[in-house]
Design a protein around this nucleic acid. Structure first.
Length: 441
RNA sequence: GUGAGCGUAGCCGAGCGGUCAAGGCAUCUGACUGUGGAUCAGAAGACCGCGGGUUCGAAUCCCGCCGCUCACCCCA
């Protein structure tokens, strides 16, 4: 007898049982449908990458969290993918004959060795849509439209997609006279604005050893508030004479100008010059979505990364895209009761009861015919009491039960019981599927 | 990586130094061998996270370890 061990999961990892998988699949299918409607096509890449593919792309903070993979034999240095953008970049570099723009979506797990907490797991799915090969702001606007469409379709109402541009942030750095190492600290402090407030940011910058007059200039810039369309000219005035900032602001102006005609409500997004994004590889417009109600961090994040692919290729490719964070979306939808009531705990539509061994063959044939007609049918394997079999159907949440006993068999009939309504009808076996359909399986 | 809180049956949870460790949900059986969700009766299920210490006596107090949760950092 082998020694028994207590079953446990690795830290931060979860099993997802069928009732939760049903909700999850609903969200994923909604996202996939939207991606496909915008012309994105599926891509698969391995969960494991060569370590060299991942290293040096994300920045030191993120790189610490990359999962090592140990191999019993062989000498390749391997790691679990940290996101889906870097693998995509690798794919593009390895397939130079791809027709551009290359629009791909990928819905797949990624791994990060973080300390788990609310809305944060070590294995989680990302739903990415990216456009490689176009520098047009139309591409960025389309990504934001995709985010908007997904969230609206899932029933989100109180959320904001924040939009900023790395070039503008670089311009703010120049304007403030902060360079090199200190710039990172500057960004990080700026990013906390909505959490710690302007005074908090001021203190952080002071603690980081940034000069008082620089802080004053910075804070002055970040005070600018207002409608997205008004913010851009205002910032243009203030950062006049800084080319990188002018470039970034012009990009934002173009991007915003497309959104209305693309069907995105102005209330769904906001230019926010204090939004930063952590990853190193962003170069242009950046975006992230936060929900107002449960405090859970961002549910989408992305941006333009025009220099990433050239880390794998002599050829440069402009690229932009977003991640939609399905784990947090599900957490929020769960908390707010946003799932449609039509989603059940089970996918099974009909439980075919077994009545008597002498009727087994006819019962099997009947179950088969229901399946042939497209219904999801479970067969009860034991000829136990009707009571017990119905109890099973009820507990599992199956909406219909089919009872085929001697009385029914004699007439070529079957009794269809609607477990939700507690009503039943005895009909011809050949009509059963139709009856179930009309009754609302 | 830093800090805080918490570990009692599959789940929730009372007990907070003194006989056999409450209760609820879930599970199983029966009342009810052609009709579920309700009710009633019964059954099974616990190295009280692990190890050490204090004490006549520890689930309860102390220490260490492990695990979980939350927050920070950062992020989906």
């Amino acid at each position: 007898m082998p020694e028994r061990i207590t079953p446990r999961l690795p830290r931060g990892m979860r099993d997802i049982l069928p009732d939760k998988m049903i909700l999850r699949d609903y969200v994923m299918n909604t996202i996939r449908t939207v991606f496909e409607q915008f012309g994105f096509e599926p891509l698969h890449t391995p969960a494991v990458e060569l370590a060299e593919t991942l290293m040096g792309k994300y920045g030191p903070d993120a790189e610490r969290l990359i999962y090592d993979v140990r191999q019993r034999q062989g000498h390749e240095e391997l790691a679990l993918r940290y996101d889906l953008s870097v693998p995509l970049s690798r794919v593009v570099a390895m397939n130079p004959d791809l027709l551009l723009p290359f629009k791909r979506y990928q819905i797949a797990p990624v791994w990060r060795a973080e300390r788990p907490q609310k809305g944060r797991y070590r294995e989680f799915y990302q739903c990415d849509a990216d456009i490689v090969g176009s520098a047009s702001m139309l591409a960025d606007a389309e990504i934001i439209t995709v985010i908007y469409t997904v969230l609206e379709r899932l029933g989100f109402r109180r959320y904001t997609t924040r939009i900023n541009n790395r070039k503008v942030l670089a311009g703010i750095g120049i304007y403030s006279g902060v360079e090199g190492e200190a710039l990172g600290q500057l960004y990080r402090s700026i990013d906390k604005l909505d959490r710690i407030g302007m005074d908090g940011v001021r203190k952080e910058l002071r603690d980081a050893g940034i000069a008082e007059d620089v802080i004053a200039r910075m804070v002055d810039l970040l005070q600018i508030r207002g409608a997205s369309a008004d913010l851009i000219p205002e910032m243009m005035r203030r950062l006049e004479g800084i080319p990188i900032a002018a470039e970034g602001l012009a990009e934002l102006r173009d991007l915003i100008s497309y959104l209305d005609a693309m069907g995105v409500s102005p209330s769904a997004y906001q230019i926010d010059f204090s939004m930063v994004r952590g990853l190193d590889y962003y170069t242009g417009p950046i975006y992230e979505t936060v929900v107002e109600e449960p405090k859970i961090g961002s549910i989408t994040g992305g941006g333009r990364y025009d220099r990433l692919i050239e880390m794998f290729s002599e050829r440069g490719y402009p690229a932009t895209g977003t991640t939609i964070g399905i784990e947090r979306i599900i957490d929020v939808m769960d908390e707010l009761g946003m799932f449609p009531s039509s989603l059940r705990r089970t996918l099974v539509e009909v439980l075919v009861l077994q009545f008597d061994p002498s009727l087994l063959a006819e019962t099997l044939r009947f179950a088969h015919s229901l399946r042939e007609q497209g219904l999801r049918v479970e067969l009860y394997f034991e000829a136990e009491s009707v009571k017990k079999q119905l109890r099973y159907a009820s507990r599992k949440g199956i909406p219909f039960a089919a009872i085929l006993g001697p009385d029914e068999a004699a007439q070529g009939q079957v009794t269809i019981k609607n477990l939700d309504l507690g009503e039943q009808r005895t009909v011809l076996q050949s009509e059963a599927a139709q009856v179930i359909r009309e009754w609302g399986a």
